[in-house]
Amino acid sequence: LGPKYVGLWDFKSRTDEELSFRAGDVFHVARKEEQWWWATLLDEAGGAVAQGYVPHNYLAERE
């Protein structure tokens, strides 16, 4: 699936296409579209919880 990303700060969605998340949440990014990335929010087991657009500057690649 490629690298995983972690949320740096809490983010509250403003549209139906955006995905709310908390700092520390883990994502798989499917598409990078300039300022907004289409991402899947993952649970602790790595299963998909939700999908939506997230601001790229709120995520960091997980080491």
Rank of each mutant, 00 (worst) to 15 (best):
G2L: 14
P3R: 10
P3A: 12
K4T: 14
K4W: 13
Y5W: 09
Y5Q: 03
Y5H: 04
Y5E: 00
V6N: 02
V6D: 04
G7I: 07
G7R: 00
L8M: 09
W9G: 04
W9K: 11
W9E: 05
W9V: 08
D10Y: 08
K12E: 14
K12Y: 14
R14W: 08
R14V: 09
T15W: 08
T15E: 07
D16H: 11
D16S: 13
E17R: 13
E18W: 14
E18Q: 15
E18C: 11
E18M: 13
E18K: 05
E18F: 12
L19P: 01
S20C: 07
S20A: 05
S20W: 06
F21L: 01
F21H: 00
R22H: 11
R22V: 09
R22G: 04
A23T: 05
A23D: 01
A23Y: 05
A23M: 08
A23V: 07
G24W: 04
D25H: 04
V26D: 01
V26F: 11
V26C: 08
V26L: 14
F27C: 07
F27N: 01
F27E: 00
F27K: 00
F27I: 04
F27M: 09
V29Q: 00
R31F: 12
R31S: 07
R31D: 05
K32I: 06
K32C: 08
K32H: 05
K32S: 07
E33Y: 12
E33M: 09
E33D: 10
E34K: 11
Q35D: 12
Q35R: 12
Q35W: 13
Q35M: 13
Q35Y: 15
W36R: 15
W36T: 05
W37T: 01
W37A: 03
W37K: 00
W38A: 00
W38Y: 12
W38C: 07
W38H: 03
A39K: 01
T40N: 04
T40V: 15
T40Y: 13
T40W: 12
T40H: 09
L41T: 02
L41V: 04
L41G: 00
L41M: 09
L41S: 01
L42C: 06
L42N: 01
L42F: 06
L42A: 01
D43H: 03
D43W: 07
E44M: 08
E44G: 10
A45I: 09
A45D: 14
A45F: 14
G46T: 04
G46D: 08
G47E: 15
G47T: 14
G47S: 13
A48Y: 10
A48Q: 10
A48W: 09
A48H: 08
V49Y: 06
V49D: 01
V49M: 08
V49A: 06
A50E: 06
A50W: 06
A50N: 06
A50R: 11
Q51H: 12
Q51T: 14
Y53S: 03
Y53D: 00
Y53P: 01
V54S: 03
V54K: 02
P55V: 06
P55W: 07
H56C: 15
H56T: 07
Y58F: 11
Y58V: 03
L59N: 02
A60C: 11
A60R: 13
E61Y: 11
E61L: 15
E61D: 08
E61F: 09
E61W: 08
R62T: 14
R62I: 15
R62F: 15
